[in-house]
Design a protein around this nucleic acid. Structure first.
Lengths: 250, 250
DNA sequence: CGCCTTGTTGAATACTGTCAATACACGTGG
DNA sequence: CCACGTGTATTGACAGTATTCAACAAGGCG
């Protein structure tokens, strides 16, 4: 729960009542074990929200190729905020770890957004960020090298986790196998393995199992040719105490 | 103008007043020539909407690599519908042809959406579709071959144009150079050229200049390993007169 | 201990990119 | 009318990146 609130409050403060309303929205949760499909067979007009754990949405091509379209961390909506307006796609939503997922009825969400401008603003702002993340992945998949893509993935995910309060200094959990990493970055498992070794040799990451450490985020950002401002998260500890301009949204 | 209305009305009928309100929203237009940057220097909280012509948004990497993130056809919003909530990215928005673009103030748009549920529903539904298109491109760039990606691009764009009333039987305009095609599909110009030749040899497309003809859409869809339902556009003339289930949104 | 998943390695292949040259089309100016 | 220039399309040769296949190692778990 706190990850969602924390994420929403990055876009504007919420009072006690508003928080409570959001919590009420999330009263119907399902518990998933790793690899469980989430929300299969649930009611159609529902928006799953990850409260704890990791999940992803993937698309399968006819010959078995898999592309992970989005990676969800605690606090993430697993569907477009207005997705209940249209029939659901048949892409699979799957848990990566043990996870608790709130199944929010689309109508309840829409109702709340209509009546509560500050809540609406927070939800909609976060969906703008989700969109920007998607655009960044188009850029990565289209034009970045394998090495840059992996660097991008690690940076982005680390910063997103930090924004959710789930990082520890320069370290976070990243429960993805090399096959998963490949299905995110559009690479074969073997190539992922080789690129990881390169990144380790270059001192940019330490990755063992699901434990990721990034000694120097700025350096990794540079390796990814990435400007993280689209995430709306402070990427680096303010070096000179310059005021952030993030809050100056229109 | 009509392309926007036509597109919105796919998601629910609008009455005379509603149409008029949308038209009023678009009263501030700019005229672009090919390659003009759109909306550069305009006010920050504005949502450009293409009324006529083609445009795209692209991202440049530091060494000059370019990725076209989205292709805009008449009726398309060039920014997230709630994008005015956050600072604007510095990606370039550029006209591909002569184009007229309405610069909608974010506040006006938000105000209209708030007061007019049916208009809001239409705008939001189309933004769900835009999102689905983006996810499809992630899949393509990550996991489809060059050949499949080009087939996908042609199918998708043709169907989108048809949804906007801008196709003629199996033909449409596609004012993209091979360099542009490469920057969309994440390929080099040379490779685009070779893949095009292959597609032509296979009888899947006819492309000369900006004139695209698709003899058999179903066949091209198959070549792309693509299910076009995400576009919410009738891809094929109803073969058996089965009722469309598109209208059954929640 | 043995099985299963995940990670690692090497060799061969396939796909895609780069470089460089050439062809073609169109519009301009001579 | 033709020469020329610019942008786009096409081609060939070559290099580089990533994939495939196949094997093997390492770790966790029953």
């Amino acid at each position: 729960m706190s990850a969602l609130l924390r994420k929403l409050e990055r876009f504007g403060p919420l009072d006690r009542d508003e928080r409570a309303a959001i919590e009420r929205l999330c009263d119907n949760v399902v518990h998933c074990r790793p690899d469980d499909e989430v929300g299969r067979g649930g009611p159609a007009g529902t928006v799953p929200v990850v409260l704890n754990g990791f999940a992803f949405r993937a698309r399968l091509l006819s010959d078995g190729r898999r592309q992970i379209q989005r990676l969800f961390i605690p606090g993430d909506l697993c569907r477009h905020i207005d997705g209940f307006l249209l029939p659901q796609s048949d892409d699979t939503l799957q848990a990566l770890t043990a996870a608790t997922v709130a199944m929010i009825p689309g109508a309840s969400l829409a109702g709340l957004l209509e009546g509560q401008p500050r809540i609406a603003r927070a939800f909609r702002a976060q969906s703008v960020v989700a969109d920007a993340i998607q655009d960044e992945w188009v850029t990565s998949l289209g034009r970045r090298t394998a090495y840059e893509r992996m660097a991008h993935l690690f940076c982005e995910t680390f910063l997103r986790l930090r924004g959710a309060g789930l990082s520890d200094h320069n370290h976070c959990e990243l429960p993805l196998t090399q096959t998963d990493l490949g299905d995110i970055a559009g690479l074969s498992t073997v190539h992922v393995n080789r690129v990881l070794q390169q990144l380790r040799r270059d001192g940019l990451i330490m990755l063992r199992g699901s434990s990721l450490t990034i000694p120097d985020v700025a350096q990794l950002l540079k390796a990814a040719d990435l400007d993280p401002s689209y995430l709306q998260i402070e990427a680096l500890p303010d070096p000179a105490g310059q005021p952030s301009d993030r809050a100056s949204a229109a």
